[in-house]
Design a protein around this nucleic acid. Structure first.
Length: 262
DNA sequence: ATGGCAATGTTTCATTGA
């Protein structure tokens, strides 16, 4: 199974780029964030034409998540939101796909340390921890994928000294990420040797991408059952190039599962 | 080689993102 997460920063703007990328990469499952589209406006026709089915939970202007599933894969138990946490913002969609519980998340940005949005981010992450604990008890094969808006370690930040304590790289946020690892989840990217200075997001401003001043804030966390079957993990930096890119690159894993041996 | 904010709605500026 090839599983991807990608913050597209408006599916409306990025649709053709997404369709082209699907054709070139043929993933089995794609987790999208920041679709910024109400469900009535979701471009199902284009996704179907590309050979996928889409399941969306969106809103206008902000947030919005979706799962794309390659034709032929069984989908069960679709769910949205964080159980037990009342959230008006559309940030989570989950389904069991080919026997794998896939949870697609768009973690709040947090804006600035100490702000109301930062407090919301930390509370949201705690609710996610509780949700993940319960989900892992039910689903040994679980993938938690999305824009986590947290750079877990200094090597995930182009200038860790400058970013230390800032939103996306503050200790309380990193602790939330470690809470997820403590549940038994693995950071799939770090299961393999990786090129140094590999990031998943670059600011549109200040030549950040050509200078590779980025952060690794998009992640695929895998349960132990999936981590031991993970054969590859990478970030498609090339997808950040060209005209009108998202500011995020797609993050991928490949999983060796019986049903996907062909 | 890459590119010098982008997307959206409140629309000719303000808000948000990260």
């Amino acid at each position: 199974m090839k599983l991807v997460t990608w913050n597209v920063n408006s599916l409306n703007v990025r649709l053709q780029r997404l369709v082209d990328w699907l054709g070139a990469n043929r993933p089995d499952v794609v987790c999208l964030q920041e679709t910024k589209l109400e469900d009535e406006r979701f471009p199902h026709e284009a996704i179907v034409a590309a050979g996928y089915r889409a399941f969306a939970s969106g809103q206008r202007t902000y947030n919005g998540v979706a799962l794309l599933v390659r034709d032929g894969l069984a989908v069960a138990d679709l769910a949205t939101g964080l159980a037990g946490y009342d959230d008006a913002q559309k940030r989570v969609i989950a389904a069991t796909i080919g026997g794998v519980r896939v949870i697609c998340a768009y973690v709040p940005n947090g804006q600035a340390v100490g702000s109301d949005k930062y407090a919301y981010k930390l509370a949201w992450c705690d609710a996610a921890t509780a949700m993940l604990r319960a989900a892992l008890a039910e689903h040994p094969r679980l993938a938690f994928a999305g824009d986590m808006n947290i750079a877990p370690e200094p090597r995930d930040v182009h200038d860790p000294a400058a970013w230390e304590g800032q939103v996306l790289f503050s200790e309380p946020e990193r602790q939330r990420f470690r809470d997820w690892l403590a549940l038994g989840l693995a950071d799939s990217f770090r299961l393999f040797e990786q090129p140094p200075n590999t990031f998943s997001w670059w600011d549109y401003r200040m030549l950040a991408f050509p200078k590779n001043r980025g952060l690794r804030i998009d992640h695929i966390l895998l349960s132990a059952e999936l981590a031991k079957r993970c054969t590859a993990a990478r970030i498609d930096r090339a997808a950040r190039k060209g005209e009108k890119p998202s500011d995020h690159a797609p993050v991928l894993v490949e999983l060796a599962l019986e049903a996907f041996s062909g």
